[in-house]
Design a protein around this nucleic acid. Sequence first.
DNA 1: GTAGGGTTAG
Length: 756
Amino acid sequence: MSRQVLPLFDNLHRGVFLCLTSAASSLSHVRQAHAHILKAGIIDHTALSSKLISLYVNHQCFPEAQLILHSIPEPSLFSFSTLIYALTRSNLLALSLSVFSQMLSYGVLPDSRIIPSVIKACGGLSALEAGKQVHGIVFTSGLDSDDCVGASLVNMYVKCDEIRDAHKVFDRLPQRDVVSCSALLSAYARKGRVDVTMKLFNEMKDFGVEPNIITWNGVISGFNHSRDYIEAVVMFQRMHSEGYYPDDTTFSSVLSAVGDLKELKIGIQVHCCLIKQGLGQERYVRSALVDMYGKCACTLELTRAFDEIDEKDIGACNAVITGLCRNGLIYNALKAFEQFRDKGMELNVVTWTSIVAGCTQNGRDIQALQLFREMQSAGLKPNSVTIPCLLPACGNIAALMHGKAAHCFALRTGIADDFFVGSALIDMYAKCGRIHMSRLCFDKMPTKNLVCWNAIMGGYAMHGKTKEAKEIFDLMQRAGHEPDLISFCCMLSACSQGGLVEEGWSFFNSMTKEHRIEAKMEHYASMVNLLGRAGKLEEAYALINQMPFEPDACVWGALLGSCRLHNNVSLGEIAAEKLFKLEPENPGNYVLLSNIYASKARWSEVNAVRDIMISRGLKKNPGCSWIEVKNKVHMLLAGDKSHAEMPQILEKLNELSMEMKKAGYCPETDFVLQDVEEQDKEQMLGEHSEKLAVALGLLNTPAGTPLQVIKNLRICRDCHAFMKFISRIEGREIFVRDTNRFHHFKDGACSCGDFW
DNA sequence: GTAGGGTTAG
């Protein structure tokens, strides 16, 4: 090429041109060439200045490129095109559009070659209005007969979520080619419109269009996007049987779908298939394999797939961190994360977000907050994914200040309206005891999806605001959202909180009959909880027996908890027996049963439960020691009422409570109180109450001040009784949140009544 | 001296 061009230039031009052609490798060459051009006064040479613009843009030097453009006396369509094209390709879409509008203001009219880049920028920005204006220009200047322009218009409307307009443009295209078909097909698949997608796919042959690899990939990844993983795998199989060869993109997509289906067998088949095709070393494929094995809970294969990668890129590192976290191997994930950091790898937002999310999901809330801070000091900006990963950590430990800071960040960066961010904010404020702030966030959201409605409903349920929860439930339906599984969980929890047995039943029944949602395990557990709490233990047990599938530990746990509440021995024994089989290593179940026996002063049975724990190797578990201490105190109280041993027992208590809290349990408190007359309790605890409270780690502020104790602990009935007691004798208000609800104690009473 | 469609975190 250069042989043809070079004779056109004189010596100076020739030097400049050579400089330009070799400039692709280095910015300093571009600068030299620029200097030559300025010196020679040939800036208005279209070919040279355009080349210079494109080279500056390739080196990400956009101000220089724009400067050159504006220094040309009469910039040509070609000069503008070069910059617009390069800006769009570099994903600087807003800048690309602004250069386009500058071009129009210079009176330069676009041709069909530059329009696709402009339209692509509109689509990428989801700038529908701008897109429509460009469409207008296209229409009036008669450029709409161009295939390329048409296909990009289809895609622009797709990106702006205007699939009807996309289809209209598609229908009016003089000729539908594989590109326009692919754009529309992937859009329908992304929307989860399986029927339309398949119809259009089958019609393509009538248009004389043969699908290519991008068509297949678009449909498969589209189904992935709409979480229709089965359709994605089906399309992959169809592609295979119709004789098309998948490429690395196809494999990455299908592996992701297989992972979400947790279909390990298919995953292994796909793995074999891609090895056969020699794509085993492709970058995206390797990460996708790590991801798939992680989703299928194959941690060994996951590590192996990762270890086999020669050049571990950022995608692979992110996949391995996510995979380890997903399978509860947070320790290994943190270790891997540290190694990547030590090696000086350039970690990106995804890496940091993944590790923060991993900590949150694995109960390391404080560490999540710390890592979030480190991420910011490493100079990385959180995004609309990072914030909703961090917020649950703030909620779990009631770190209101951190939550508020994240909220401010979201407002500053304009991501507060995002569905994920908004619903996470609603949940965080609810968990921090600021339900009015939850409502504020909810009301401020311009558009709300089902998750947002469920979040505020769950917040009200958590705070025992049954009336408000019901109002939201009705409003949501009037806004056109069908309640889902989670909506009903929230409503059942709200009813349980308010002791509304009848209404609970009515929600439970309408769920299956009117909304055609099959009751899942968590609904049965909620219902058992609701009935049990209200003292209808037999009814709860009858419901369990009617369940269409085997009840799990949550269901039996709800029954056992209720039996403890009402001290029902016979049903408690039945529930405990099931639980001892289902989760033999959960000390909480043994403790609950032992408490039921203790309430009836059946000490030999209390000891028998302790013996079962010992025989199952739970001797070192704090729960076992707990039963032991409890028994001892009871013996003490039954005989000698001078309580001379109280200080020593408190010390033992302190020790045990530390251990139990580490295990995630809220230590019980009122074993010293139950079966003792009211006035005795006061006398007995008078001097010890503060010490006991501190020992339990629940109260650590001076007496008399109102206090908010929000911990992710499992508050049991005994704790509840103790809190009521403390609120009366110390005359202070106490706010406590356990794993799912709020309790407000004042003057010896609790806002959620005697259901505890 | 230039176009448009498909791959990872919640």
